[in-house]
């Protein structure tokens, strides 16, 4: 499938196949969770870890949800995977479409560039959070990692820069460490 085709799949699914809820409920709830984690752990590095962990738990379940709503099959290659994440996954769950950029020469790493993260809408980090390196939306990294693990890909997923730290855009790096299953399923396309 081309990137354009994945985009259409994502948009169709969002339009017809996705129950929706008010974004602000989601945004405020997530904010409340992060603050709770700060109070519980008293350490921003620990909060990052916990957000990633929670994201992972979500990711391993979420993948089935995506596939069910869109009728997509497992991807043939990492390039297609990147397109599915950005144009289908993020679209169906958050109604945003990060762009895929900065591919490594071996095709095993790429970046997701997010310029309109709903979670950031009203958010300003305390200076200590910036100083201590809180990645406010770190849950995304865990979700991607968990979802890809269910697709037999072991990955490292991490924030590289964030609007909340003063950058122009947010950037998540996705790195394929290894394919867990030797057999790569044939692409159904």
């Amino acid at each position: 499938m081309s990137a354009k085709q994945y985009k259409t799949v994502g948009e169709e699914a969002w339009k017809n196949n996705v129950e929706k809820v008010n974004a602000e409920l989601f945004i405020f709830t997530y904010g409340s969770l992060v603050v709770q984690l700060v109070k519980d752990y008293e350490d921003y590095t620990a909060v990052n870890k916990q957000l990633d962990k929670m994201g992972y738990n979500i990711g391993v379940r979420l993948i089935d949800d995506v596939l069910a709503r869109t009728g997509l099959e497992k991807c043939a290659d990492f390039h297609s995977t990147a397109e599915v994440i950005s144009k289908v996954g993020f679209k169906v769950f958050l109604n945003i479409t990060p762009s895929v950029q900065n591919w490594s020469s071996d095709g095993k790493e790429f970046s997701l560039i997010i310029d309109d993260n709903p979670l950031n809408d009203f958010c300003e980090l305390p200076p200590r959070a910036v100083q201590d390196g809180l990645w406010y939306s770190n849950v995304f990294c865990g979700v991607i990692r968990g979802a890809l693990e269910m697709m037999q890909m072991q990955t490292e997923v991490y924030f590289v820069r964030d609007v909340l730290h003063g950058a122009d855009v947010s950037e998540i790096r996705v790195k394929l460490v290894k394919v867990l299953d030797e057999e790569v399923p044939a692409n159904d396309e």
């Binding site: 969002w14 996705v18 129950e19 929706k20 809820v21 008010n22 974004a23 602000e24 409920l25 989601f26 709830t29 997530y30 969770l33 916990q50 929670m54 738990n57 979500i58 379940r61 979420l62 949800d65 169906v92 769950f93 958050l94 109604n95 709903p118 809408d121 849950v139």
Partner: peptide, 22 residues
């Protein structure tokens, strides 16, 4: 006016379930 209208209900559901588990 709400600049951004909706997200998927699943997003909330997954997040909420994880909050309960936590």
């Amino acid at each position: 006016r709400q600049r951004r209208d909706k997200v998927g209900l699943s997003s909330f559901a997954f997040l909420f379930a994880e909050m309960i588990r936590y």
